[in-house]
Simulated assay, not measured.
Amino acid sequence: MGASTVRWRNPKCNGKLPPGSMGFPLIGETLAFLSANKTLDMPPFVKKRAKKYGPIFRTSLAGRPVVISSDPEFNYYVFQQEGKLVERWYMDSFAKLLHQDAARINGQKNIHKYLRNLILGHFGPEVLKEKMLPKLEDAINQKMHGWSKLSSFELKDKTSAMIFDFTAKELFGYEAEKSCDNFGESFTNFLQGLMSFPINIPGTAYHKCVQVINESLRLGSVAPGILRRTLQDIQVNGYTIPKGWALMVVPAALQLNPNSYEDPLAFNPWRWQTISANVTAKNYIPFGAGMTSCAGADFSKVLMGVFFHVMVTKYRLTTIKGGEVIRSPTLGFEGFHIKVSAKHE
């Protein structure tokens, strides 16, 4: 074993690193992390290593040392330390797509504040309450009416396009029906690139209604993790996470934990009638937590609520052929085709 390999597997640390493996030099454990799987459960990459090493472990992804945490107490602490012990960190792929230096992007805190205020100005609670609800219901009604004329369609593609067209029209006046360019598809491709690692590997690229929504968000943890970067050494459970390391909080590992949710892979909206606030405070983070939680959280829940309301009261849904769940590493649902019919027909 060469000296460089020894150094790779044993990074410098002013204390004891969390257990884990750094994998191979440069590539680390990236291939295993990106490996596609067909399960709604927490990503096998995390589940396997958490079982072996515990809820906090180290690894290396796309050439960067990373500590991955499924510990609810530690994750809650991390979100409260924004700007003190940790900072927002955007993957290197974000910088590469925008042709910018990663350190400069991560260091410009005003960018996040500007974007957050922009989103809240268009989709914040007050706007939703005062004028967004009727516009959203009209848009969904229009889309559902159009879908009812189709023999069948792929659900994910249509709903994704519907959400993009509505938000883009509200943000910058984009009207899909008058455009010859498919911006929705381009945006989807951009997001796939953003959520990937910058490494060239082939194949990598809203009382009952609220319960429905909560359960969907609990099960559907789309992002593989929420990223931060340490601003100084952090002590946890006798281990040290070195300054400058990436830190990944895994929502699925919390929201699919059988110790917090009975039969976690079952879709059971009624579980939310008895779940205490103590459980959700640290084990339910579909939109992140702390000061930098997602600015679009309220809009997302309202959109889901209105969509379900229109669908249940005015239409019936028939499955044409089933799809499958794919994590690679983001959560996706591929090939689920349905037919929508108006109830008066």
Rank of each mutant, 00 (worst) to 15 (best):
T167F: 00
S70N: 11
W8F: 06
S196I: 03
L191C: 14
G121C: 03
L120N: 10
L217V: 02
P269W: 11
N200C: 04
G296I: 09
A62P: 10
S328N: 13
L31Q: 04
I338F: 00
M195K: 02
I119F: 14
W8C: 02
K282G: 12
A50S: 14
L303Q: 14
Y76W: 12
N268G: 00
F153M: 10
L194W: 14
S341R: 14
G15Q: 08
I234S: 05
S70F: 05
T280R: 08
D157E: 15
A277S: 07
I199Y: 04
L118E: 12
L303F: 14
K52P: 00
A205F: 12
L128N: 10
G296R: 06
A95I: 06
M195I: 07
F190R: 01
A295E: 05
L136M: 15
K48P: 00
A266Y: 10
Q100Y: 06
A139I: 00
L265H: 09
L155M: 11
S293C: 07
A102K: 04
Y90W: 09
G244H: 04
D233P: 03
P286V: 01
S69Q: 07
A295D: 02
H112N: 09
E215T: 09
M162C: 12
Y315R: 00
L120Y: 06
F333R: 08
P18A: 01
P19H: 00
A295R: 05
H344S: 15
I285L: 14
F94W: 15
V312K: 11
K51A: 08
A161W: 05
K51F: 00
T167W: 01
E137A: 11
D157G: 12
G332N: 12
F267M: 12
V86H: 01
T188L: 10
N110V: 02
K314F: 02
M42W: 02
S60N: 13
A281I: 04
Q235F: 03
A281L: 13
V86K: 02
E215Q: 05
L61A: 02
T274D: 12
L136S: 06
K129D: 08
P72G: 10
N278V: 10
T292Q: 09
G238W: 02
I338G: 00
Y76H: 15
L194R: 08
A252Q: 10
A223H: 09
A253G: 15
A281G: 06
G296W: 08
N37L: 02
H309Q: 15
A297G: 10
A277D: 09
R58K: 14
E215W: 04
T159I: 15
G107L: 04
S69W: 03
N14D: 14
F183Q: 07
G28W: 00
E324R: 15
E324V: 11
T30Q: 04
D181A: 07
W147Q: 06
E215K: 11
V236E: 04
R327Q: 15
I326D: 05
N259Q: 13
C209A: 08
N117K: 14
